[in-house]
Design a protein around this nucleic acid. Structure first.
Lengths: 223, 223
DNA sequence: ATTGCTCCGATTGTTGACAATCATTCAGAG
DNA sequence: CTCTGAATGATTGTCAACAATCGGAGCAAT
């Protein structure tokens, strides 16, 4: 039985995906208003599904909606990013702890392999492409999965990581942090391999808190 | 100028509120299917707004939707509750830390007053009414506010607390924990008053982790 | 008896038209 | 000239009809 090559999706789900990408890549800029009629005709669908897609993006915190006034792309100013990184610190810290408690040896090996691949990529094409190609997300994504906590996974992958991608796309990123990041990643994996939840959480929180500090410093310097 | 007594809301927002209450109180039971046609006629609205309301509830994690098959009320089994309490531990721990760093003296005093009121209520009407009347939520709600972190507040108040209310409504709750809970609340406030973020986070995490252990024990015993 | 197929009813997904609301503009009074 | 406020255009909210899809009942063949 041949499986269908194109997975049939509902129009609003497809619209939701397109909108998500448009927002993250900056095709729809921060604070920009989302006109229902405009987007509907542009995507070749009706306003009904599009409205539902917007409701979905609201749930992901990518847009903010105000009744009778429409939806606007969320604005990631310094305060919002500070909030985001604190929440991320809490959630990924917990994810690392739970991953340390529950990841199988096989999964840990896969993680190590992932970091090896990342290291090679960095050596070959300069640190820049690491963040740019979202290799960094691979790592954090796998840790989230390792926690076996579905709610944690949904929160991180479905909401926080989208906002982070959005931020990363729009601010050019420091490539001098890649080596430090990779080293910290290895330390975290080591703690997970040892089943040391306390240490894994501590290291992940430091890793994220440090990333925020350097982003913040860069933002304050560049403007 | 007299402010309007009835705040005009959109139909889908009103439906969203009604549905939320119906789910939390158990009027719509866990796992039950939400029929669009049925609910729409019952609420006296059309299917359009109702569908948007369901999308909103999906964002709050109160229902789970599968394309072409409808939406069902989420099932809070043991595994889901375990996940929920771990996430809560991480987020409220962070909220307590930030509250300790940022709450004003005045706000802390208000918190102390709140706990005094709670204590009186417990003495007067037995411990039972404390959890039942959602006095416990008052406390956690104020701490979230104190964090000054809007994303944290949205996550806790808009999503996690709804699920917790749902759980609390349906499982009769231990009243022998009220005294211990109150004592722990006081310790947390003390840490916040001292501006000791480390301790505030630690105590809150213990508080929540302890609550989960006793709930889990009760569930395993009762079935 | 069980497996597979077809048809049918019920439910969800989608559409375009209609109603309500908001923001802007422009006229007129002070 | 400024401020108020009423008309107007554009945008969002709502509705009811239509199309697409899923699940199950019933029947036939092995």
């Amino acid at each position: 039985m041949p499986t269908p090559l194109v997975v049939e999706k509902t129009l609003s789900d497809k619209a939701s995906l397109r909108l998500t990408e448009a927002i993250i890549t900056g095709e729809l800029q921060q604070g920009q208003k989302l006109s229902e009629a405009d987007l509907a005709t542009r995507y070749g669908i009706s306003r009904g599904p599009l409205r539902e897609a917007i409701r979905e993006l609201e749930g992901m915190r990518l847009v903010k909606r105000v009744p009778h006034a429409g939806a606007r792309v969320v604005k990631l100013d310094m305060a919002a990013l500070a909030d985001l990184y604190r929440v991320r610190e809490a959630l990924e810290g917990m994810a690392s702890r739970m991953a340390a408690e529950q990841m199988s040896e096989q999964e840990v090996n896969a993680l190590v392999g992932l970091l090896d691949a990342h290291e090679k990529q960095i050596e070959k094409s300069g640190g820049e492409s690491y963040f740019q190609s979202e290799g960094d997300f691979d790592f954090h994504f796998h840790i989230a999965q390792g926690s076996r906590n579905q709610m944690l996974i949904d929160l991180l992958v479905g909401e926080l990581y989208q906002l982070l991608r959005m931020c990363r796309y729009q601010t050019s990123h420091l490539r001098n942090r890649t080596h430090m990041a990779l080293k910290q990643h290895r330390q975290i994996v080591e703690a997970i391999a040892d089943g040391d939840g306390d240490l894994a959480e501590l290291l992940m929180r430091r890793h994220i808190s440090g990333a925020w500090k350097s982003i913040k410093a860069m933002m304050e310097e560049n403007k």
